[in-house]
């Protein structure tokens, strides 16, 4: 028994030291590697925080000697053709890896294949690419839609009318969240979607759409959203003098602050969830692991960031005014995401 224990501790210590030395080796292995971020759009606060997270992580990693260089490039027009040309430039500039937030899941596949053929590691996140040679760090958007209805069902056991705010028409993210919401409404059949508008993930657009639809809507019990549209929706309900439904929010600071104010006023409670823009730092560390020669599955899933009544205060404190709630991921986070994908 004692013998076994000793053996066990020795094994644990051995494993730990192996991991530690493995880690330093892995970090040294990438010290001369250069990484580029190819980003298709910078025109909203989420993307701005995403770029900041990437730059901070990249700067730290460069200073620590983990990597030689990590540069961020953004296209100006949010066009797949422009981004494809940008990727071709990055290949010619001799980067070892290209991290992509893609304008289209399929339109960049040609350029991505060229990169793979040239021996460049390609990792896509948020806006992923379907080319088989690339890695994908995806969010389970369908689950995000489904969980919103699950939450509303827990709050409103008797069901009621729902208003659905959709995202940018024609994007895969919008389709996936919508599909999740549809499945959620099938599961909880006391709910009925009695209206939907496209809010394009923008408060002004959502506000306008809801204001135009509200006069013809019955009493609304809950609003399911896609992020960046909750505050505008709330303002439209307010302006129309309607009872405030439970609006599932999307982690924007103005939404969280509004929630806090409503809670202080009449005990309003809701749920807020979205992807943390810091997913760019996760993509960075996953890329570093691939460059270091680690076995990394092609499809990884990143959890979304949820804010509940219990965590509202602390999240709001950490979130800069006018920004988006964020988590910056570390090497350890990347390793655990990779490990969970291995097991799954």
């Amino acid at each position: 028994m004692t013998q076994n224990n000793k053996l066990f501790s020795a094994a644990v210590i051995g494993a730990i030291s192996l991991t530690l030395s493995g880690m330093t080796q892995a970090q040294e292995a990438t010290a001369d590697k250069r990484v580029a971020l190819s980003n298709n759009y910078a025109g909203n606060s989420w993307r701005q925080v995403m770029l900041q997270s990437f730059e901070e992580t990249a700067e730290q990693a460069t200073n620590d000697g983990v990597i030689d260089a990590a540069d961020a490039y953004t296209t100006s027009e949010n066009q797949a053709t422009e981004q494809a040309a940008q990727i071709q430039n990055l290949i010619l500039q001799g980067y070892d890896a290209i991290i992509i937030d893609a304008a289209s899941p399929t339109a960049l596949n040609g350029a991505v294949q060229e990169a793979c053929d040239a021996g460049v590691t390609v990792v896509s996140f948020d806006g992923i690419v379907t080319a088989p040679c690339a890695w994908r760090i995806a969010v389970d958007f369908e689950a995000m839609g489904h969980q919103q209805v699950d939450y509303l069902a827990s709050r409103l056991p008797d069901g009621g009318n729902l208003l659905e705010i959709r995202g940018l028409a024609g994007t895969s993210v919008d389709e996936q969240i919508h599909a999740g919401i549809q499945r959620g409404v099938e599961t909880h059949d006391a709910f009925r979607i009695s209206g939907s508008v496209h809010g394009d993930w923008a408060q002004e657009v959502a506000q306008k759409g809801v204001a135009g639809l509200l006069p013809s809507l019955p009493e609304i019990a809950g609003v399911v959203t896609q992020g960046g549209d909750g505050y505008g929706t709330a303002q439209a309900f307010d302006a129309a003098g309607r009872d405030m439904p439970i609006i599932v929010l999307g982690n924007r600071q103005d939404e969280l602050q509004w929630w806090q104010e409503q809670h202080a006023k009449d005990g309003y409670e809701t749920l807020s969830m979205s992807i943390a823009p810091g997913v760019a730092s996760l993509a960075f560390w996953v890329t570093q692991q691939i460059l270091a020669g680690e076995e990394v599955p092609k499809d990884l899933t990143v959890p979304f960031l949820k804010v509940t009544q219990d965590t509202l205060e602390s999240v709001l404190e950490e979130t800069p005014r006018g920004s988006v709630a964020n988590t910056v991921y570390t090497l350890d986070d990347a390793q655990s995401v990779i490990a969970s994908a291995d097991n799954g």
């Binding site: 025109g43 909203n44 923008a202 408060q203 002004e204 505008g232 103005d254 006018g322």
Partner: peptide
Amino acid sequence: LASFSGGAALNMGA
């Protein structure tokens, strides 16, 4: 518009 909708957003003019 920014005063009406609670702040300026980078894509507000689109």
